[in-house]
Design a protein around this nucleic acid. Structure first.
Lengths: 184, 184
DNA sequence: AGTCAGACTAAGCAAGCGCTTAGTTACCGA
DNA sequence: TCGGTAACTAAGCGCTTGCTTAGTCTGACT
């Protein structure tokens, strides 16, 4: 799965051959099929476990914050760091899921909807208690997630910025975007 | 080229066959090779012309605004609208360029750097004249472009929001992000 | 009427693809 | 010592891929 994540993130699902994955894992071409029934099944396993760990991370970020401002900062900081540190898995999660079969795709789409809800809900709570000012919590949640998700597109290990720096930057930008700069 | 843009945007460069492109254009499989020497050359032509028109759009957005705040709002609104209205070309531009040959890739990367500079420069001018407040213009420019670029990822023609609405939303979010909400 | 360039196709080639088959090896409990 | 199970490979099958070749057709110009 690690070899597959590496290859899928680097070249994309369709440009990756099962022979790439096999040799990356130190196996013969047939060796992959001992563990996975098809290349798509491998993508699905990667995508599902990636989505599940991302969702777990988001929920943990909410649980560990006393106020909506702390929770939003946690979400942006930790999720951004995850996109950097696990950037190969993150790329597969964010950009390869539409190559899944319709059934498998539906399963990860359900997880993605929950991820959206986590961000939208924290905005709604912040608006409700007066700490946040936003025009539309759906639009704002999408923009915040765009900033984080896009990390998986532009990040490369050759970049000098550390995960912590990127996380801190994105957390600060988020608080500014919801009009809560003076807190958190 | 239209048929190729459609197919590349829908399935990605490697998942698209030359036969898909040919039949999309109403040609036999060999008909494509009358006009283009290879599938990669077709991607390059699409990617280059897409990058050029995006860069032209960005420069026009700057030219048509009297102040940095107007210019930034123009950039965000028009570039977001472009990502919606030309979302197939936009997807190819934003997500397929790394499948180009090294030489062709270098050529579009130069255009992409210029696009980044346009956004970063308007932020610097806004900071210089006191209308914008940002911690780091590079980080902020990247976040603003993330919001726009990500449109090409999540947009689908089935979505009810109009290009103008999405453009207006992103322009408003940008002004808020640089601390210039009261203007524009 | 004759010529010729350019757009196009039918047929197909060599290579690479996802995946299978038949068989080998290593290891574990009885 | 043995039978069984799971991990693995060498070889290769059938198909699809990007692209080529040889030839046809159309229309503009002389």
């Amino acid at each position: 799965m690690q070899a597959a994540a590496h290859a899928f993130a680097d070249k994309g699902f369709h440009a990756t051959t099962t022979r790439d994955i096999a040799s990356g894992a130190g196996l013969s071409p047939a060796g992959v099929y001992v563990h996975f029934g098809s290349k798509e099944e491998l993508l699905f396993n990667l995508s599902r476990s990636g989505h599940e760990s991302a969702l777990r991370l988001l929920r943990g970020a909410i649980a560990d914050g006393p106020t909506p401002a702390h929770q939003l900062a946690n979400v942006m900081r930790r999720f951004s760091e995850w996109h950097v540190e696990q950037y190969q898995v993150a790329r597969v999660v964010q950009y390869e899921h539409h190559h899944l079969t319709p059934e498998h795709h539906a399963e990860v789409l359900a997880l993605r909807k929950e991820m959206d809800s986590v961000v939208r809900d924290v905005l709604d709570r912040g608006v409700a208690d007066g700490t946040f000012t936003v025009d539309d919590s759906g639009d704002t949640a999408l923009a915040l997630l765009s900033i984080v998700v896009d990390v998986a597109r532009w990040y490369s290990p050759t970049i000098r910025r550390t995960p912590a720096e990127i996380g801190a930057t994105n957390a600060a930008l988020a608080l500014r975007l919801v009009g809560a700069t003076h807190r958190a």
